Simulated assay, not measured.
Amino acid sequence: MTGSSSAQQLPDLARVVLRPVRGHHAFEACVEQLATAIRLGVHPHGTTLPPERELAQRLHVSRATVREAIIALRTAGMVETRRGRGGGSVVTYSPRRPRARARAAKSPSAEILASWLDSLTFRRIVEPGAVATAAGLDLADDQRAMLTTAYDAVTRAAGSAAHRQADSRFHLAFASVTGSPSIIEAVTRVQAALHDMLMQIPVYDVNIGHSNSQHEGILQAVLDGRVERARQTMEEHCDDTAALLRGLLG
């Protein structure tokens, strides 16, 4: 199962990650949310974004604002617009291998590093709480199936870039089943920061294997309704990832 096909089996993620825009900067907020959804693989390479009307309804903005945001994404090379039957805004963004991106990218500034490290601290609070909340719910069969599908997608993802996006979708899936807009927004934010950090370091097979094992423990704890076990396993997962990033990013 590829990262792209698995995302198509998780349509609810797109619905919950794209949320009503707040404040007066509608254009910028639309670009941020759509770009984040694309980078995290909620809308993976080769898939088509929802129609402008649907996006406008989700984001609570005008279709003109959505159109302007899509133009910005197209200018940035993240989507291309295809005309005619079956057309639309098709995602062209495909994450480069982390090692290649690390070589090409400039070293992050001290300000960015400080923001990233703060995100790791925030994540340690947010994501354990999210899975604990999910574990305490009476999950419907389709929610349980969605979480299992998200886990399977991570374990079967081919290549480091596809694995990174599948990993993001796995974490977002738990936020989505809580039904809490605040939890979903917080997890999306920390996953976006985590994505940027992980793209700066090499991929280690031993770390991926360890991470997948923890993912299995988190999934099983949630499906079994073991609230504290879900929280504890996610805390360990967050701590291990944070230790790796702090060591390599300084």
Rank of each mutant, 00 (worst) to 15 (best):
T2P: 14
S6E: 13
A7G: 15
A7V: 06
D12I: 13
A14I: 08
V17I: 15
P20I: 01
V21Y: 08
R22C: 00
G23D: 06
H24R: 15
H25T: 14
E32I: 02
E32T: 09
A35V: 01
A35M: 06
L40Q: 12
G41C: 10
P44F: 03
H45R: 10
T48I: 14
P50G: 06
A56L: 08
Q57A: 15
R58M: 12
A64R: 13
T65S: 13
A69D: 09
L73Y: 12
G77T: 03
M78V: 05
G86E: 06
G88R: 07
V90E: 13
T92R: 11
P98Y: 07
R99P: 00
A100F: 05
A100T: 04
A100L: 14
R101Y: 10
R101M: 06
A102S: 14
A104K: 12
S107R: 15
S107P: 01
I112C: 01
I112P: 00
L113R: 13
S115I: 05
W116L: 09
I125G: 00
I125V: 15
E127N: 11
G129C: 07
V131G: 04
G136E: 08
A150F: 02
D152L: 13
V154K: 01
V154D: 00
T155S: 12
R156G: 03
A158T: 09
G159L: 10
R164K: 08
Q165H: 11
R169F: 07
H171G: 07
L172A: 07
A173M: 09
V177E: 05
S180W: 01
S180K: 08
I184H: 06
E185S: 15
T188N: 10
R189W: 05
Q191Y: 02
A192Q: 04
A193R: 01
M197R: 02
L198Y: 04
P202Q: 02
V203H: 04
Y204E: 11
V206W: 13
N207W: 07
I208N: 09
S211N: 09
S211H: 13
Q214N: 01
E216P: 01
I218M: 11
L219D: 02
V222H: 10
D224R: 14
R226Y: 01
V227S: 05
Q232A: 15
E235P: 00
H237A: 02
T241W: 01
A243F: 04
L244S: 02
L245F: 05
G250K: 02
